[in-house]
Amino acid sequence: MCTATHDFCLAPVPVTRREFAGASPQSRALAHTLRRTIRPFLDKWARYPDLPWPTGVVDLFGYSLGPVRGTQRRPIRLPHCHAEWIRPPGEVADRAILYLHGGAFLCCGINSHRQMVSRIAAASQASTLNVAYRMIPQNPIRAAVEDGVDGYKWLLSQGYTADRIVIAGDSAGGFLTFMVTLEAVHQGLPRPAANVALSPLTDLDPAHKLAHPNADLCAVFPRRAVGALTTLIERADTRGGHGPSSSPVDGLLAPMPPALIQTGSQEMVYVDAELMSERLSLAGVPCELQVWERQVHVFQAAAGLLPEGTRAIREICEFIRKATDTPGRPTSAHPPVLGGAG
């Protein structure tokens, strides 16, 4: 029996914490490059966040990052946004992933994340719905949550059972991974099999992040960017008289499924990953927290170039397969028959 305050349980489940030591020459080179390119750029953006920055360009650049060989994709239309359905090569198990991309709720999309998402789909043998949810500043975070829930409903409508669906995402998409699951359960939908969050933002309050030593160590995000993003989120959320968004770490977490959280040891959002794992533990929810030494934000996107990224994808896919393979239940080689794209 859990209490209402952060859903603390009488018998919390200990967090399974795994440390992955070492940083390859490739990962050190990537961190060095990001620290001298992306980090200064984000610091400049944070000085003038209200300028009409071309945030959509980031996703356009993603066209050059094609899917891994053998995967198939087609467009899907959800009620308020579009999505992309990625089918892995070969015989596909009747499991599915709902994927929510990162990008600070502000940029990135299907194109920028297609390669990583298709890599996860292929390695886990899970067809994957990559959702291009509505973003700030035009829309509040609650719109993105609604789009994620619509994606989950779409998977259920296609014949996938909840115990064969994993909700996953990176960075801001990690935030949405937990919030979409909470909202789906709140609406009376069946609980998914698991959550997977890569370098997730889980707490909209910037205080803990800025007080942590990683605020000066992160290779991607400068201090100033945290405050600027917080302001943009608050404006988008309160426009139209609505209240501010809540954070997953403050949710009633007892109904949540098991979770895998991966984070780099020097990331700005390391403290968010750690706090979320602690809150899940206190709510009695099994959680594995993987801490990868000196890896940059969403280093998994560089799988194929970084050995750590490749290994992290393997860990993710093993977790997904275990979470969706119910003991004693035969795994069909034929996935549910999908309806039209409209």
Rank of each mutant, 00 (worst) to 15 (best):
T230M: 02
W53C: 00
M276K: 06
A193S: 06
R235A: 03
S245I: 07
P336A: 10
T71G: 02
P206F: 05
H113F: 13
Q158P: 00
P248S: 15
M276G: 02
A323K: 05
L252H: 09
G188T: 05
P286R: 12
L60T: 11
F319G: 02
E315H: 12
P137R: 01
P244Y: 00
D94T: 05
P25Y: 10
L182I: 12
T3W: 10
F105Y: 04
R36N: 15
A194R: 00
A283P: 04
T324F: 01
H186C: 04
L30K: 02
P192H: 07
A302N: 06
F105E: 02
D50M: 00
H297Q: 11
A168N: 08
G309F: 00
L182D: 01
G70W: 03
A162V: 11
T326C: 08
P75W: 06
G103T: 04
L217S: 08
E183R: 15
A23T: 15
E274H: 15
A254N: 04
S127H: 06
A259K: 07
H242C: 09
A312E: 01
Y152M: 10
Y152V: 05
A301M: 05
M1C: 08
A225L: 14
E146N: 12
E84Y: 01
L252D: 09
T5V: 12
V226C: 10
A211M: 12
E183C: 08
A168M: 15
E91M: 13
R47C: 00
L42F: 12
A46K: 00
N139T: 07
E267Y: 06
A11H: 15
D147S: 07
A4H: 13
R18S: 13
A211K: 14
D170Y: 10
L252N: 05
G169D: 10
I38K: 08
Y160N: 04
V185M: 04
V271C: 10
V166Q: 06
E19L: 15
M116T: 13
S27A: 15
L306Y: 00
V185S: 04
T177M: 07
T16C: 13
K153P: 04
V166L: 08
Q290E: 15
A126E: 01
G90L: 09
A143D: 15
